[in-house]
């Protein structure tokens, strides 16, 4: 997550969020189990979420799929 932000900080922001401290935000994003990853393409208004650990390849595949919608 943070590695991806570092690779292109102008385009990517990587946030890790402590769910307990930000309960309202977690509730708004329907976080019932962690880790939960939410990918948002901000300038296209597209969003997808995944529960559980996410590998680098899996995340990139899902990101590509989101761009192709």
């Amino acid at each position: 997550m943070h590695q991806m932000a570092l690779a292109n900080p102008a385009r990517i922001r990587g946030e890790s969020i402590e769910a307990g401290a930000f309960a309202e935000m977690a509730e708004a994003e329907d976080v019932y189990a962690v880790p939960k990853t939410i990918v948002t393409i901000q300038d296209a208004g597209r969003k997808e979420s995944f529960e559980g650990a996410l590998s680098e390849d899996h995340l990139i595949r899902r990101l590509k799929a989101l761009f192709e919608l």
């Binding site: 990587g14 890790s16 962690v34 995340l59």
Partner: peptide
């Protein structure tokens, strides 16, 4: 990642 042309927000709740 370097060639992305859109702004992406990656959030992980932990």
């Amino acid at each position: 990642i370097r060639n992305l042309e859109h702004d992406v927000l990656l959030r992980v709740f932990v």
